[in-house]
Design a protein around this nucleic acid. Sequence first.
DNA 1: TTAATATATGAACATATATTCAAATGAGAG
DNA 2: CTCTCATTTGAATATATGTTCATATATTAA
Lengths: 128, 128
Amino acid sequence: MATVLITGTCQQPHVHAETVDQVRKMMTDSNRLLALADIFKVLGDHTRVRILHALSFSELCVCDLADLLGMTPSAVSHQLRVLRSAKIVKYRKAGKNIFYSLDDAHVAGLMAEGLEHSICAQEDAPAP
Amino acid sequence: MATVLITGTCQQPHVHAETVDQVRKMMTDSNRLLALADIFKVLGDHTRVRILHALSFSELCVCDLADLLGMTPSAVSHQLRVLRSAKIVKYRKAGKNIFYSLDDAHVAGLMAEGLEHSICAQEDAPAP
DNA sequence: TTAATATATGAACATATATTCAAATGAGAG
DNA sequence: CTCTCATTTGAATATATGTTCATATATTAA
């Protein structure tokens, strides 16, 4: 009988028009937020975080990293390529080896800030 | 004739044993780095970054966010669930609406730091 | 109660991505 | 040059993930 309800869309003229408009004006360019998300995406992988953490102590070659992480050099190399593309690490050739090191201070800062604060897995603190 | 070469593994006794050992001692627990990667993974999505950025200005209901982002309330709700699971946002019921807001100061700090520094897409600065 | 709306949820689909494997490249060492 | 080894690369596979669609839940209004 009744017309099929058009679900999935907010039908009020605007739920909170003023607030939404104000926020819309204050919000940063979407492309900038997309770029930010892309950086976080690069950092959002266990292997890559461990690579960056290791490189924060010393430059290392691929085999060093593979040994440290208990992974195949191939797998490490694939992830290094991602980090290289994002300009987060740089490399230096030395004979048969290629030494990687951190390249982006901002990203290193994000890593450090993430580690400083006990953002990670702060378990329950049962109060008496 | 020759034995098949065992490729994909570093065969030197250790490429740089001392350095690797030192770094290994300094490195943080792998689980802690996994938790850190998980947080970055949550932040590594365009939609979720935009949601958090919008919420940094004001609490908003799902329809407000859907309007701001030009997305389906369903899609927004799915992403809000991810943010809820990560304890990054909290919510408050008000009649038919549910208002979301930021919950984790650390994560908000990471977002802010990521935006402050022009980490994002700093294009070429052609020198004269 | 019924109707309308905001939100959540589950399945399905498409896409992205991490690792493995095999092979190629490239640079010393003999 | 030939051999060895460090590194890269490409294909393949498995898995994760974001959005859509349909539907369910919940709350308010009539």
